[in-house]
Amino acid sequence: MRQDRDNEAGGEPLDAAGVRAPTDNARRRPVPPAVTGARGRPSLEGVADMPARERAYHELKFRIMEGRLPPGTTLLEAEVANLLGLSRTPVREALIKLEEEGLVDVRPRHGISVRAQSIDDLSDIYDVFSTLEVKAVELAARRGIETNDGRRLSGILDQLERATQREDPVRWSHLDDQFHSELVSLSGNNRLCATLRQYWDQQYRARMAIVHMRPSTAQSDREHRAILQAVVERDIRRAAHLHQQHRDRADRLALELLRRGPA
Rank of each mutant, 00 (worst) to 15 (best):
R88H: 07
H241E: 10
A17M: 14
R115C: 05
E161M: 09
P108S: 08
L153H: 01
P42S: 05
D177W: 13
L228Y: 00
Q3C: 08
I96E: 10
L14Q: 11
A38N: 02
Q219N: 10
P13F: 02
A209W: 00
E93Y: 13
A254I: 01
P90T: 06
R162K: 11
V170M: 08
V128R: 02
A263P: 15
A16D: 10
I96M: 13
L83A: 09
Y126D: 04
G85I: 06
M1A: 11
A239H: 00
N148F: 13
T73D: 03
D15G: 12
A34Y: 03
D248E: 11
R237A: 14
R39E: 10
A56Y: 03
E146C: 04
T217H: 14
R225M: 06
E182Y: 12
T147K: 13
E66G: 07
Q178K: 12
E8P: 02
E79T: 07
A209S: 12
V91Y: 04
G18K: 01
G102E: 03
P262M: 06
L157K: 07
A34V: 08
M65P: 05
M1K: 09
L258G: 01
D124Y: 09
S216W: 00
R234S: 12
H174M: 11
I125A: 02
A48E: 12
M213A: 15
R238I: 05
D168Q: 09
R41F: 08
I210Q: 01
